[in-house]
Amino acid sequence: MLDAEPSIYSLIVLVLLSVAQAVSLVSKGRLATPASLPVLWGLFLALAVSEWISFIAALWILAIISFCALREYLSLVDIRLEDRWGILFSYFSIPFMFYLIQIDWYGFFIVAIPVYAFLLMPVCVALGGRSRGIVFSVGALDFGLFFYVSCMGHLCYLAFFSERIAMLMIATVAAADLIHRALRNRPRALRVPLQVVVACVLFTGLAEWSAIPLNHSFALGIIIPLLVCLGRFTLKQIEDDLGIRADRLQPGRGRTIDALKSYLFIAPIVFHYLRWFLKWGAL
């Protein structure tokens, strides 16, 4: 919406990621690639499609990623037999949310999950007819809806405003993750400043390309790595409880949601930062 013309960067990154993905498929796991590669590839595919082909197609690719993440989360969480209507409702909220983005109805999009879904979903769960354990069920489904549908929707809306800033955000988070992985055994006092420096360089260096004023680029470069750190700390504990372990990240056992966690934690914050300070919503 804000970008004048499609940028070549998205294609370059997509090609690089596709090559890595192809190598990992052809080598059948002998060449170890990060477990988060498919998700990163999916996100960049959506952004490249959005820039070069159509935003609507990209939107539904992101909806599919959202569905995969929610499905994986619901497969891991301990649900009762009686929650099935609630789960069905949660799945149906995905196309609804993404349709709201497609027609650019921001007012409804922003309240759809926290107001309507959070009120209607418990009704569906209560239809199951057993009160014992319903609080935990509603809580678990609420988190799933919020994180894997609402936050994913924010990511999509961010791409709707500007694919470039979405791409920049994803690249920054990926870089922060990479630094975290590479320097896992080093103290945090070394890791976090390095992540901040890399993010600031990325954002300020590309400020002209992303069309964000220099001071806000700088601020985002500081905020994003710190929040990635916070998000990882929070989601790590949730993943522990869900039984997701870094050494067995199989499909359906946390590979998707583990890869998505940092992007989803950041997306609403960056989105609302830009809406508030750059007045994007008024456009």
């Binding site: 499905r71 619901l74 099935r84 789960i87 799945y91 199989q250 359906g252």
Partner: peptide
């Protein structure tokens, strides 16, 4: 159950 739900199978 009355209907199947999309959930992972191992």
């Amino acid at each position: 159950a009355a209907f199947p739900l999309p959930l992972w199978n191992h």
